[in-house]
């Protein structure tokens, strides 16, 4: 029970931290990091909600797995765009 609350608070805290950072920073890399932390927080909420007496529900586990893979794709695109913007600025 204590563990559950600890992880729940962590999930909610990560979401709050990430939203705060996203709202207060204009830095490109920080935005990418913030969005990644936000996703981790949401994943934690899903897994905490899925915990039950007979183990963790497999369906939210699959959701989180899907979310992780989707996020790495989006992150790669974000970073490629950010690098390209920096490169064009240098020229």
């Amino acid at each position: 029970m204590i563990s559950e609350y600890a992880f729940l608070a962590t999930g909610a805290g990560l979401v709050g931290l990430a939203l705060l950072r996203l709202a207060t920073s204009a830095d490109l890399l920080m935005r990418v990091l913030g969005l990644n932390v936000l996703a981790v927080g949401i994943a934690m909420l899903l897994l905490v909600s899925g915990m039950g007496a007979s183990g963790t529900d497999a369906v939210p586990q699959a959701f989180v797995l899907t979310g992780i893979v989707v996020l790495v794709g989006v992150t790669a695109v974000l970073l490629a765009l950010a690098e390209r913007i920096a490169e064009d600025r240098d020229e």
Binding site: S3, F7, N36, V40, A43, M44, L47, V48, G50, M51, G55, T56, Q61, V64, L65, I68, V69, L71, V72
Partner: peptide, 15 residues
């Protein structure tokens, strides 16, 4: 610790 070893593996490798 949350009983999701599949996700743990994916997070370590991908996330």
């Amino acid at each position: 610790r949350l009983g999701a070893p599949d996700v743990a593996l994916a997070e370590a490798a991908i996330g």
